[in-house]
Structures are given as structure tokens and as C-alpha cells.
Nucleic acid binder design. Structure first.
Lengths: 117, 117
DNA sequence: TTGCGCGATGTCGGATTTGACATATAGTTA
DNA sequence: TAACTATATGTCAAATCCGACATCGCGCAA
């Protein structure tokens, strides 16, 4: 069914069911934040397991130590591409990266705010 | 073991085995290209399944129709973040996105054109 | 103590990516 | 035929992200 036709049906009072389970923008944002965190943690785990310094990994992907530090700190300024690049450079396979995506987000705890004084 | 110590051992002729299976930069690049393609294909599949236009999806993530088109064309100048944003906006879960990562790159076949008349 | 390696954090000029817009083509409907 | 919708493609100024660099604290070894 074309969208134009669907719109006509809906305008006529029909509900075209299928799956219009589209997430709100904030829900998407939240997923991205969680994902960035999960990837950054995975990167640190993998790097430490290889016993290499941030500087060494940085050289591998032609980046800099400070940027690797920001990646591992889940700094919102670092792109997902850079995080993926880092993971692959530690020898991660697509499958291993996939598991980071599907895992139930390691921490669960969200920004523990301090109580009001 | 600290990296400095490892270096000393290696300088002394030792091989510190563990897993130094670090990929070359071009191998990483190749993985990223494949991944971008897989994500763009998944996005198109999901959008079409929902019977929504590129314009509609664009509004959902506050982007533009032309950018969605570029995303689905796996244009190298669209970011992974935008691709992920698009997928999540179609209702994809982390698990579903993970499956895109782990799948053996949805085949090699490129744009099945119709035969010449 | 001094010196060194590692990592965290901030800054900055330049590179990249963005949404918006224009425009072209193709398919559909009137 | 014209009008409308969906998609592809190119451009551009503004926003974002980059590598590089400086600097700081920490832990360890000389």
C-alpha cells in the first residue's frame, strides 16, 4: 500500500494498523546514550585485556591519546564511528560488537543525582 | 602487567604472547564500509515495512528527506550515529540492530536492476 | 627526592557532517 | 495532458567532530 493511499484511508477514519510503533525522539536519544556508554566500556575492556596503552591504540587508528581517553569516557563529542573503529582495531569482530549492542546495558544505573541539600 | 614492563621484556628478546591480533587500518576501514552498507539496507527494509516515506521518517528524527535518501544509499558522508538514529526511529531494538552487525553482510548483490529491454 | 609512563581534561584551528533547499526523474491519478 | 507524490542528487552555511597539543595528577622506580 502506498503512503498516499494510507493517508486517504486514515483521513476517512480508518486505522491502518500494521506496526506504527515509532519511538519518540527522546527515546531514540536515550538508546543512543546507552549505546555509547556500552561501546566505550567494551573498548576499555578490550584495550586493557590486550595490555596496550591509550597512546598505542591511538597510533593504530591514527588518532591521539586524548581522544581515546574521551572515547572511553563516553564523551558525547566522540562519534560512533570512532568508537567502532577503536573496537575493530582491538581485534573485535562484527559479532563481538553485536553482542555489545544486544547486551542489556552493563550498568543500568542512570546518572545518580545527589539529593537536594 | 604494565605496558612499560612488557616493553622491557620484549626489548630483552621476549615475546609477550597474549592476543596482539590487531587489525591493520585498511581491514578496519573495510569492516566499517560493510557495516555502513548493512545498516543502510536494514534501514530501508524497516522503513518500507512500516509504509512510511523518507519525508515522514525525516520528520521523526528532525532531519530531511534528502538526508534519509543518502542514508539509504550508504553515502559515506552520513554518520553511523544518524543511521542508528534512523533505525531506532523505525522501532528497531538494540537486539535488532545487533543482528544487523552480526549477520554475514546481507549479500553482495547490489541494486537488482531490471534487464535491458 | 627526581623522573617517567599512563591517563584525564581543556582548548583550538581545520576537517567533516549537518539540515535545508533546489531540482530532476519516475510513477500515479485525474 | 497536468498535478501530485516519492525518491535521488547536488550545493552550501552552520554545526559538529577531529587530531594535536598542553597540562595536570597519580603510581612506580631510580
Amino acid at each position: 500500500m502506498k503512503e498516499s493511499k494510507r493517508k486517504k484511508l486514515e483521513a476517512a477514519g480508518w486505522r491502518v494498523g500494521s506496526a506504527d510503533e515509532l519511538l519518540g525522539l527522546s527515546a531514540v536519544e536515550s538508546l543512543l546514550v546507552d549505546l555509547r556508554l556500552a561501546l566505550s566500556q567494551a573498548l576499555r575492556r578490550r584495550r586493557e585485556k590486550l595490555h596496550i596503552s591509550q597512546r598505542t591504540l591511538a597510533e593504530r587508528i591514527k588518532s591521539s591519546q586524548s581522544r581515546i581517553a574521551k572515547m572511553e569516557a563516553a564523551d558525547p563529542e566522540v562519534s560512533f564511528e570512532l568508537l567502532l573503529r577503536g573496537l575493530f582495531a582491538t581485534g573485535a569482530t562484527r559479532r563481538e560488537v553485536a553482542s555489545v549492542f544486544s547486551e542489556p546495558t552493563t550498568t543500568a544505573k542512570r546518572k545518580p543525582r545527589q539529593a537536594a541539600s
